[in-house]
């Protein structure tokens, strides 16, 4: 399942999925003046009567979604990942707590968003939404998987937060491969028994690059796409533990994100040596995606180094 080069951004996959779901009259789309960016604009253009543009008002958008959901609609709301955080308490008290199903997509997440600078580079979103009981949290790695996982939300019984990326990434899944993805079931993209890299979002392609490089050095690592951070695929993590070393890779703070979620499972179920590649308690700055990812330590080289540190350490079990 390794990638061929077909550029697209995961946010495009979200826009594709809304159109795929449009034949279901229950589906309604909510925007907060960023539909062109999150890609819900394509649904809006075809179905203006089922699209509600609410202005720059994320808190209102969240609860309007709740009111629609109570009446049987399936609302898909989107804004930038960073501004989804502004409606966090609305999601907590108005949606997750109340048993209503509203789907929120935050695009332009992480350092990968680049030039807009630190005010836009959300590195907390996955962590905070993960704390809400019953909330599903996803971060797909490419256009096709974002499309498929968003489509799966149609019959999903829980509210969700999905982070998508602004910038294009390699195609990791063909359309057919993506069709088989399930929410909560991680995907093994590459086999290996020396160590495992568990990644999400834009770090998946970097993890595949790292695995390639490590292979040249005689280290065969498994690569797992943990597209769903909650409910997390515990079995995939415990299988990864059998390789004896785990590196997590995320364009997100290591506090609360994928690395934390994996560590929560391992520390209780199967203590395993691990390292985290992620944002180390820092804010970003303007720069090209590559420049800022380099500066924050979010490159395939960083992943390679962490794997080598684990694999080469004497006394490894």
């Amino acid at each position: 399942m390794t990638g061929i080069s077909e550029p697209g951004a995961s946010r495009d996959g979200y826009g594709d999925a809304l159109l795929d779901l449009s034949s279901d009259e229950r589906v309604v789309v909510l925007e907060a003046d960023l539909g062109k960016s999150t890609k819900s604009c394509h649904f809006r253009a075809k179905y203006p009567n089922r699209t509600f543009c609410l202005g720059i008002a994320e808190q209102n958008m969240a609860l309007v979604g709740a009111g629609l959901a109570e009446a049987g609609k399936i609302p898909f709301a989107s804004t930038f990942a960073i501004f989804s955080e502004r409606a966090f308490e609305q999601f907590r008290n108005g949606i997750a707590r109340t048993g209503l199903v509203v789907h929120l997509c935050g695009s332009h997440g992480g350092m990968h968003t680049g030039q807009d600078g630190s005010s836009a580079q959300s590195t907390e979103d996955l962590g905070i939404f993960r704390t809400l009981p019953g909330m599903t949290v996803m971060h797909p790695c490419d256009r096709n998987s974002a499309r498929s996982l968003t489509r799966n939300l149609l019959s999903h019984e829980y509210p969700s937060y999905t982070r998508t990326a602004r910038n294009k990434t390699r195609e990791i899944y063909s359309e057919e491969e993506a069709d088989n993805l399930e929410i909560g079931v991680a995907s093994e993209l590459r086999a290996g028994e020396d160590a495992t890299i568990i990644a999400c979002g834009v770090m998946v392609e970097r993890s595949l690059d790292a695995a390639e490089e490590l292979s040249h050095r005689g280290i065969e690592v498994r690569v797992v796409d943990m597209h769903t951070l909650k409910p997390i695929d515990k079995d995939a993590i415990l299988r990864a533990a059998k390789t004896g070393a785990i590196v997590t890779a995320e364009d997100h703070s290591v506090i609360g994100g994928l690395g934390s979620a994996v560590a929560e499972i391992l520390s209780e179920e199967c203590p395993t040596r691990m390292k985290m590649v992620g944002v180390r308690d820092k804010f970003g700055e303007s720069g090209s995606p590559e420049e800022i990812m380099n500066k924050m330590g979010l490159t395939s080289d960083n992943i390679v180094q962490r794997v080598i540190e684990l694999v080469q350490k004497p006394g490894r079990t």
Binding site: Q59, M61, L63, V64, G67, G72
Partner: peptide, 14 residues
């Protein structure tokens, strides 16, 4: 502060 937004959603659904 949340109820009027919820009510708006209810009204739009109707």
């Amino acid at each position: 502060g949340m109820g009027l937004s919820f009510g708006l959603g209810s009204a739009l659904a109707a």
